[in-house]
């Protein structure tokens, strides 16, 4: 059986898991190989989204839901989110968060309540740039660093989907150092 790879949020390396039938007479009897360990497990699945596992006599109820290249697993009251990494995805390199942010993206779908800046305006770190409203809450999107506004892609009253680029920014050259010092 082919190997599956899962990535926990924030983990550096994916984990490989493979399942083999342990007993031709029992559909659910399996050996799971995870890293160097071989685990004997009985799986009873009901449909494709839930069931229970027995490992060494211990019973675990689970539900699972696949979405967006990931799988969410509920096991014994705790929900875990795993990504199924895309093989072609960039690996290694410096984390993007070290570089200045060059755009303001809607972290939620919502309505644009206020745009505090126009093209060409300069701003300081933490200066409120855009106010969004979603589900009865106001959210202030503040400047990640100092810079100037390159483009405004939204207007007041507009309903914006998740991930919409609201502003394009140009970071001021000295920003990274200032942030490190503060």
């Amino acid at each position: 059986m082919s190997k599956l790879r899962f990535q926990a949020p924030g983990a550096s390396e994916p984990i490989e898991v493979s399942l083999e039938r342990a007993d031709p007479a029992h559909d659910g009897a399996m050996i799971a190989r995870i890293a160097d360990a071989a685990i004997s497990v009985d799986v009873e699945h009901r449909g494709s989204s839930d069931g229970w596992l027995k490992v060494g006599g211990k019973v675990h109820r689970y539900y699972a839901h696949t979405r967006d290249g990931g799988v969410e697993v509920w096991l014994d009251g705790v929900t875990y989110k795993l990504e199924v990494p895309n093989r072609s995805r960039r690996r290694g390199g410096s984390p993007a968060s070290a570089a200045p942010i060059d755009q303001i993206v809607a972290p939620m779908p919502g309505t644009v309540l206020k745009v505090n800046v126009a093209v060409g305006d300069s701003f300081k770190p933490h200066q409120p740039l855009v106010i969004l409203e979603s589900m009865k809450m106001e959210m202030t999107l503040s400047a990640p660093n100092a810079g100037t506004v390159e483009a405004v892609h939204c207007k007041v009253g507009e309903l914006v989907p998740l991930g919409t680029v609201l502003l394009a920014l140009k970071a001021a050259p000295s920003t990274a150092e200032e942030n490190d010092a503060s």
Partner: peptide, 10 residues
């Protein structure tokens, strides 16, 4: 491990 197994089964 049980979570990984459940994910793999699913």
């Amino acid at each position: 491990d049980e979570v990984l197994i459940a994910a793999a089964v699913t």
